[in-house]
Design a protein around this nucleic acid. Sequence first.
RNA 1: GCGGACGUGGCGAAAUUGGUAGACGCACGGGACUUAAAAUCCCUCGCCCUAUGGGUGUGCGGGUUCGAGUCCCGCCGUCCGCACCA
Length: 830
Amino acid sequence: MSRFNPLKADAHWQRIWDESQTFAARDDSPKPKSYVLEMFPYPSGRIHMGHVRNYTMGDVLARYRRMKGMEVLHPMGWDAFGMPAENAAMEKHVHPGGWTRQNIATMKAQLKRLGFALDWSREIATCEPDYYGQEQALFLDMLAAGLVYRRESAVNWDPVDMTVLANEQVIDGRGWRSGALVEKRKLNQWFLKITQFADELLEGLKGLDHWPDKVRVMQENWIGKSQGLQFAWSLSDGGSVEVFSTRPDTIFGASFIAVAADHPIAQAAAARDPDAVKFIELCKQGGTTAAELETQEKLGYDTGITATHPFDPAWKIPVYIANFVLMEYGTGAVFGVPAHDQRDFEFATKYHLPIRRVVSDGDKTDPDFVDAEAYSGPGTIVNSHFLDGMDVEDAKREVIIRAEAGGWGKGTTVYRLRDWGVSRQRYWGTPIPIVHCDQCGAVPVPRDQLPVVLPEDVAFDIPGNPLDRHPTWKHVDCPSCGGKAVRETDTLDTFADSSWYFIRFASQPKDKPFDRAMAEQWLPVGQYIGGVEHAILHLLYARFWTRALKHIGMLDIAEPFAGLFTQGMVTHETYKSVEGKWLSPDDVRDGKEIATGQPITVGRTEKMSKSKKNTIDPEPIVDQYGADATRWFMLSDSPPERDLAWSEAGIEGSWRFVQRLWRLVDGIEEGEGNDVALDRKLAQTIAGVAVDIEALQFNKAVAKLYELVNAIEKAKPSASRSNAIRTLVRLVSPMTPHLAEEAWAAMGESGLVANADWPSYDPALLVEDEVTIAVQVNGKLRDTLVMPKGSDKAVVEAAARANPNVLRILDGAEPKKVIVVPDRLVNLVA
RNA sequence: GCGGACGUGGCGAAAUUGGUAGACGCACGGGACUUAAAAUCCCUCGCCCUAUGGGUGUGCGGGUUCGAGUCCCGCCGUCCGCACCA
């Protein structure tokens, strides 16, 4: 009996798939279309296990859908712009383009070795002018439609990466890539008007039934919609201050106004009062991490100004500068209602401001609020003149109506979402197709001059943007007046590149970003698979970009990804030497460090990372075990949304299974006669595996296939058995495609198993004719009965009563009650 | 603090949505084959006990039910996201 040799088989079948263009998606196919997409990789150098897991899942689905008769678009490309290329350029003195293209070549070869059913004819790399040039065209389309603007703004400046970051890219006050503390700077920046779509993006989430709730909630929170009243208080210095509140119903509980440290009122106070300056400085020192915010005291500085209550000219409250008010949110000023907001409560307690109850808490209606913390729940409005007796929601409406009627306020919706700042002071990105002219201002590059190509001759010996200091590149004539002008030297945030690549996969004409009809044939992506780390950034930007294109009338697709699946990480044990240094799995054998023979300590199983040295390079694994065993392991054991712990034993197990499959095929004996039990098992497996793959529950599909293999191995030769083996080859082909092709050919089947149909079965076989019925006494299992399916209740009850175990336990007693669940169980209650 | 997910053998996990808990895999142990090893095959495998049986068992404490991993109430713990959001 032979062994399956992946070294030979993998390359052989990969070449055949390649040559016959097996997985090229046909645009003109009459079959129903299906778009399966995994998040395209950044070409960092080599693929890692996370890629293998991600792409294996998508591949199984793509291959399965092909077998089910669908025309599947399953493309691959490269998110090829970005900073690591520039860092490599600085460290290793290579060109970012050369470095990136070399990485792409390496990683493409690695992906090919895993036998993914990808349509490589549609491969795109975002760093090539035929891609980013079309992106520049889209940028200009958005500009023309008023979705792009430029303004000076305080931006998040990453001093290590020397570039601006979007709000989404600042995590706990630090750059998402560099981890450096982000500074505020004023710069002229290009913005995309994502806020114009805030409500659409929020509402659209409701229809995304095939997205994880977690991701929908995260996006919902990020968009952060609040409805309330924006209104003005007139001030004792003759001015006024605009505040925003979601609780206008508590307006009669106001006891102070608080403004942000960089609010104009604070600035004005600073101009006349040195103590105010000191306080503002203090505010700016405050940290922004979770822990710091939690412990940070609410501090205020009384400006001496008072504000007049809009409903009572005689009612004055003080105006404070406060460290907890953010200039970026709402109007940068709030009115404080200590009784019904915990933050205001703490502030009022510290500065001895009145705490007035205006919402009843159960029976408590007393205006003197003496509770230990603020009450923010529902209730009836009290101590509030004309609002008394209303519930909170009615009172909100009433105050808004009166404010609007009185002309001093307006019902408003405020979003946390900010416009998307896309300017990056980097070289390795899509050049922003704009020319700055002293006479004409910012002028779009004419369409016939696109793409604006990145110059190749750049140097990275000093920090900063090489485009900015390039001797010639930026100096051009103004497209409008012909006078001397300079190019925009900022490039687009690379998240722009990944915001529409899935459209370009569906349609990639030379002369435009995409063909509308062609793109609409494939879109939306039916199943998108990737890491949860993109839950906000990439997925929100892509949703926005798609809606922007719809708004412009370029594409009639509202949501780009109908189905989303976020897969778990691949993890591995961590090891430390006696000296406490991280050790790679390669340095460890039998609990000892190979180099020193010293015992090692096994740490937590964690996400594979270079810093903890617990990575496993997929390539040697594929060398040793082949693509199929590697793929099989990626699908086994752990549910795909959870983490998968890589282990030597696990991959060995997968390897054994691949060989077991091969032995079945290799040792196939044509038998006579039917084995109905095996026929049933086969039918159940065909049906069950299909359900599991469709639900992306690969671990369950794997378990069912093991069961079938166990059953076939135990079965005696019969026509059923040889049929089961032939069918098994098709069932495993999405997971272990090389072995399946090899087996398919060995069994004398024609064509490729990749083009075979998913097996069918007789539905009658799914119906068991015998069932095992549990026999319980007082809810405890005492025995089981095997009976014909659909047996009469009375018959089943009689059989249960006659059961020796039951007789012994009942000991002659008559059951008080008998529950018979047809085909499931009998419970005798004594 | 807010939001979300989760908690089942030594480990990864399953359990048709209230009906035989632990399918399937990994590991461990025993055996067969072999001069030996590898490979392969067979058996055992939640825990406890007086063992062809019985008790107990799905983070903890209650509850509903003939019957709870699943439903309800109250806790504890782990992970993830957001956060002075007005």
